[in-house]
Amino acid sequence: MLTGIGASAAADTTSSEDPTARDYREYLLTVTRPNQLQVIDMTSHTLLRSCDIPGPFGSGIMVPAADGKTAYVITNIWEDIVGIDIRDCEITFHAAQSSGNETVKSFQSVAVSQDGQELYTVQNPVRLMSDHYEVLEPRLAVFEIADGIGAQPVRTFPVDRRITKIAATGTGEVILGGGDLQAIDPETGDIRVVEPLQNWQRGEEWMTPDAFAMHTQGSQANEYIMPYSTARFTDGEQDMATAEWWWGISRVNLETAESERMEIAPLTEVIMNFVTDPTDDNILYGVFNSVSKIDIATKTIVKEQPLDHTYYTVNVSRDGNTVYAGGTSSDISVHDAETLEKIASIQLPGDMSTSDMRVAVIHDAAP
């Protein structure tokens, strides 16, 4: 198991019994329809502000900068990326990616370098001709955040198709979640395989995994998780009916870019997304029709708590004490991490649909 995941994120925290003694504030971020960024105080579980996002709703996918002050959101039906200061709703960055007869979509992919200077997205361009569409090669686009409103890519590099969620590492690479887990150098375009998934070589005993590259939420644990499902065949016939079905993850430490891949629990129910406890990288939380707590060492779901309805995404506080289930509807369900009992509900002014639910941390911050 990797070392370091979660440790650096929790190193400067104080006792969860006295939140006012912390030198930081945590904010839960999500996007709701028609198109607003919601900023939630994670100590009081109250909605602080709703920031209007230009253009129609995209997918609600976003990334907070490392300093926590700005959230970068995909908007305008996946064509634009805007940066919004979560403290006052000021728009500080806007990249309109389509121009002329070329329509550019970014599906789920947005990341910010850990020094806060560059923004990355995978562009999927299509040229609109008079009588047909010309599908162009996908590319990683690199923006300078200092270019602000009207930013244009300063570099682009070809990448594979089907890449969705991405993340920036402390080593200067960008993790690309597609058929396989890859990393690209945004200075040179050089690509390496981090963890093979579609192309893993585990023999006929294992079924090729089905990965789910939708949400990214593990920034406070300084990690990237790609969930997958697979089957281990118990005979030479590859009989699905007798196979052992498993949940698994490919996980990347975003500080070091070290990675690991493992099966984590039997696939006994649908789980939409996973997030690691920032204080214990052996513990995962998952969500769909229930909140699940998974012990990786024993490969078991050790606790489950049924939910009022389906939720798509999950996150956890920086001290590891509180779990949040969000997405889908207009409420966030708040749970005690030890017992998984529901302790609060946060009502929002619109539904979250496919949106991310991210944690932003600002040091010495006012509400």
Rank of each mutant, 00 (worst) to 15 (best):
S259C: 10
R232V: 08
S345Y: 02
V110A: 04
V154G: 09
I264T: 15
D356I: 10
A65K: 10
P367D: 11
M62V: 05
R232A: 11
N253W: 03
E304P: 00
S98Q: 04
S345H: 03
V135K: 10
L29P: 04
S292K: 08
R25W: 08
W206D: 00
D67N: 14
A243E: 09
G150A: 09
V194P: 05
T298Y: 06
F93L: 12
A231C: 04
D23E: 13
H215L: 07
G177S: 15
D356F: 13
S98E: 07
Q220N: 14
A95T: 00
P266A: 15
V361E: 07
T103E: 15
V316L: 05
G177E: 13
M240Y: 13
D331C: 12
T300H: 02
D85I: 05
H363A: 07
D331P: 00
A257N: 12
A297V: 10
A366R: 12
A111T: 08
T310F: 15
F212E: 13
S355R: 06
D190I: 00
D12Y: 05
I91M: 14
P125E: 03
T310A: 06
M1K: 12
P186G: 04
A257S: 15
P56F: 07
F143W: 02
V135R: 11
E17C: 15
